[in-house]
Design a binder for these strands. Sequence first.
DNA 1: CTGCTTGCAAAGGCTTTGCAGAACA
DNA 2: TGTTCTGCAAAGCCTTTGCAAGCAG
Lengths: 144, 144
Amino acid sequence: MNEASYDPDQRRGVVRLLRSHGITPTAQRIKIATVLLARPQHLSADQVLALTNATGKPVSKATIYNTLALFTRHRLIQELTVDASRAFYDSTTHSHAHFYNPETQELSDIPDGQLEISLPDTLPEGTEIDRVEVVIHLRTTNNT
Amino acid sequence: MNEASYDPDQRRGVVRLLRSHGITPTAQRIKIATVLLARPQHLSADQVLALTNATGKPVSKATIYNTLALFTRHRLIQELTVDASRAFYDSTTHSHAHFYNPETQELSDIPDGQLEISLPDTLPEGTEIDRVEVVIHLRTTNNT
DNA sequence: CTGCTTGCAAAGGCTTTGCAGAACA
DNA sequence: TGTTCTGCAAAGCCTTTGCAAGCAG
């Protein structure tokens, strides 16, 4: 029930996942990855810090930031840039479209198939597509 | 030739534009708008500051930030969030898709028609679409 | 006059970095 | 034993804010 409870099978899975992405598993990285990848979610660095340190031995803020950057570099998670003031980290790497509500600061996935996009056939010279970020910014309906 | 040269006609146009967006024209706002709207471009606050203060009486950094926020609120320009570290301001409000090259920090428009997107027909309860941000993140091609 | 606007400097939030100690192979 | 990783605190960058003076209507 407790998210941080010790589950050897889960731990082994996370270790395998880190290794398969070329990341050396350490206690801190395993803990952070376990929190992040528990379910599809979008978390700010601060939220990751809070969740990670909700139980067990705390992980420092510097390590959180360094680890999130490392995970992003190795494509274990995806960094989202929807708000200039804060980065979000998406635990799912396949879905790329999101709703963002600035009022509630809520970020949510748009289900696959709900949105279609056709990419341009010509790109700037010498470049290729790294990733596509689609964010639909919402506002509360004006019920006058 | 000089971008900041005094052109009464241009100035009148900018004043009209500000008024039509519900913005009280002041010397600083006119100067900033003139720089920004000179052509389609994507500028950071710092770049706007530099360009604005390249000639004439300088405008303070605080006013630049406040004015860019004001212009954005009144939909004269559009704020783009492609890089967590810096906001960009787009002088064109109709085109929404961009290429972004993190290595060069270059932001460029994708011509209309090059990219098509079908929006979802269902939105979260009580919300409507404010704007859609599509950013194709590029990377330099690996010429091994 | 009265309210909005500007500018300066200080504060603020998020993120990165330097460096010493700890962990790991 | 040599390299990588962690954590603390300090620094850094971009942006916002408080407040007094200036300007516009």
